[in-house]
């Protein structure tokens, strides 16, 4: 049974449409949810837990529809929306003391372990923590009630490279322990390091749900000194962008072979920025 199944999620705003979003998160899987700012990542994640009411669509956690099973579902998931920005002047010990009361499966020993692993001091307030430490505290809370699925909204934004690396390592470790993770980000290199699959959203529509390496593997990155005049080559270029030395663009793997273009393998970041340009 999949920890999360989203089907046909639709939400209409006056200036934005989240359109028929569907994807699944499998057990023990890290799924990256990527898209540029404003693509609909946060709206989708908010729809999952009814913070935003979708107009259509269904969200099922562990086979149960969220609607009507809120309490049971929330006992089994951890939702971390960025860093902790609540009760900034209260001590972590006070926030934990309140939080732990709500969870049937609160594991005090696990909480102590995570606090120690993340080098968090309970006597501090969130205001005294760095961005990375704030995220780690949120994770410690989520993991201490033995969440089986973590939904993380941009958990690595604003973190320095070392903290990001630490965090990704923790995600991989958790996935090995069977925890599923869905995390949204626009830092694609994070996903290359740890995500098993990605869901790519653009302008409110899911464009791809596939294995991380498959997504970029469909394309090759080509660098040209100038815009080609040749019709077939020009037509094959996807999202050409001006560069210091000319221009770069994506081409489909088969087009690169057919046209004999000088190209290199494409990473997730390049795939995304050129696909966004093409859109």
């Amino acid at each position: 049974m999949n920890p999360l199944e989203v089907s046909g999620l639709t939400k209409k705003y006056p200036s934005f449409l989240l359109d028929d979003v569907s994807f699944q998160v499998r057990p023990g899987e890290i799924m990256g949810f990527i898209g540029r700012n404003g693509a609909g990542k946060t709206t989708t994640l908010k729809c999952l837990t009814d913070m935003v009411h979708p107009d259509k669509g269904e969200v099922c956690f562990f086979g149960m529809p969220f609607s009507g099973n809120q309490r049971a579902v929330k006992q089994r998931i951890g939702f971390v929306s960025g860093a902790v920005d609540f009760y900034m002047r209260k001590k972590l010990s006070a926030i934990t003391d309140v939080t732990r009361r709500f969870y049937e499966n609160w594991d005090e020993a696990a909480y102590r372990r995570w606090m120690e692993r993340f080098s968090l001091d309970e006597r501090k307030t969130p205001a005294a923590l760095s961005q990375g430490m704030k995220i780690k505290y949120c994770l410690a809370l989520a993991l201490s009630h033995r969440a089986e699925l973590l939904i993380l909204d941009e958990p690595t934004s604003g973190l320095d490279p070392v903290s990001r690396s630490d965090l990704l390592e923790n995600f991989l470790m958790l996935a090995k322990e069977g925890v599923s993770i869905l995390f949204s980000t626009h830092i694609t290199s994070d996903l290359e390091r740890c995500a098993h699959r990605i869901a790519y959203i653009r302008s409110g529509r899911i464009q791809a749900v596939c294995k991380t390496e498959e997504f970029a593997g469909e394309y090759r990155l080509v660098s040209l000194p100038e815009t080609p005049q040749d019709g077939p080559v020009k037509a094959a270029l996807i999202g050409p962008r001006l560069e210091k030395t000319g221009l770069s663009a994506l081409v489909r793997r088969e087009d690169a072979q057919r046209l004999g273009l000088p190209c290199v393998p494409c990473d997730l970041e390049n795939a995304m920025i050129h696909l966004e340009k093409e859109a």
Partner: peptide, 10 residues
């Protein structure tokens, strides 16, 4: 935002 994360109904 904090309360919405807790296992309670709105």
């Amino acid at each position: 935002e904090y309360s919405m994360l807790l296992p309670v109904d709105k």
